[in-house]
Design a protein around this nucleic acid. Structure first.
Lengths: 196, 196
DNA sequence: GTAAGTTCTTGACCTACATTAAGTTTTGAC
DNA sequence: GTCAAAACTTAATGTAGGTCAAGAACTTAC
């Protein structure tokens, strides 16, 4: 059940007493979304950190030509938010949308800040996952600067072995930074290679 | 003087007593580097968070073809480290090098962790700057996916107005993700445009 | 079950940027 | 002040990946 999932994911990094766990859980609101619903739209202020307990979300931006670019996926067990907007409480540029029917737990910015003061271990937990997130975005930036589309595809497969089967191909294409057309060609080419 | 600089940069985010300031300063080692010296080489384990008090550092990776890619610059008042290596204490992939004669203050990983336990405000401070860093890397990734080289150049000018004048052009080219040759033509083209 | 939307594929053509090469200017060490 | 190395520029040519268009294969809604 979803309370276990989120507590487990936290206690992998910091230890919590039963009281602390209960207090934390009491702050969460649960919510469900149908496939293709928007959790957040650009221009809105992001008010929650969102933890996915079932389904999958995607964060993406829309550029001046109307093209979408996937910043991140949030499958079960992951947190997602428009960090810029959440931190500054100004209108953001990120859209967050469900790729399947999805269940989430919401932690408001206000409660999150309060939690940091009441129980510093939660500040530690969020520091740690922010650090890990930073490392993976740095790596992804370097990959985009130094690898070919095909190499980025292989990295994606290694890092998200389950998502490869469940996500629509155009979403993966957008994540690694190519058009669906080129992605399709690339897969065809790789298939030929593998046969040899 | 450099102690003021680092204390100011922290107290912009959290308040510190005179004792706390003194304790923090007692943990720092200061060090100077000549232009083009290596502070860290790929394959080494990163043991320090580095704060720049004079000069400028650059963090970069070298790809399989021997090309360098600038991950970040650290001018005066900025922190730099190989975050992946610092967190995991495994060999990293980042090189950190001085672009000019540079003075830094070093905080060892061990002392930083201890500080988090002794004075939680320091954990808050590093959480906040890590969050800000995450936001700016996310933005840079989106820029790389959705903007042309010329637009990325303009972003760079807006975000680092001082660095544009002090950094070698090839370093800026590498940061925005183009070759020095293309960067040179781009500038030429933009000059022609401006004259009209 | 069928119509309408998505998603995926394939082909012809295009472009932003890379590569190679050669020359020029700037910097730095003695 | 001079020589060597590094940084920068310019030009010719190459290519990874984009664009446009049209059809095929799935999904979804009623």
């Amino acid at each position: 059940m979803s309370a276990n999932l989120i507590i487990d994911s936290i206690t992998r990094h910091v230890q919590l007493s039963a009281d602390e766990q209960a207090h934390f859980l009491s702050l969460l609101k649960s919510k469900t979304y149908r496939r293709k619903q928007f959790i957040l739209q650009d221009g809105q202020v992001c008010k929650y950190s969102t933890f996915v307990t079932a389904g999958c979300l995607r964060g993406f931006t829309v550029d001046q030509n109307g093209f979408e670019h996937v910043l991140n996926f949030a499958p079960v067990g992951w947190w997602i938010a428009d960090m810029y907007s959440l931190l500054t409480q100004k209108p953001g540029i990120l859209n967050i949308e469900s790729l399947e029917d999805t269940e989430v737990l919401l932690l408001s910015k206000h409660d999150q800040e309060k939690l940091y003061h009441e129980i510093p271990k939660f500040e530690r937990f969020f520091r740690i996952i922010t650090e890990n997130s930073l490392v993976s975005f740095q790596q992804r930036l370097i990959d985009n600067l130094s690898l070919t589309a095909e190499e980025r595809y292989h990295n994606f497969c290694r890092r998200y072995p389950t998502l490869i089967y469940t996500l629509p191909k155009k979403q993966i294409a957008s994540y690694i930074g190519v058009t669906p057309e080129f992605y399709s060609r690339m897969q065809h080419k790789m298939l030929l290679k593998d046969k040899k």
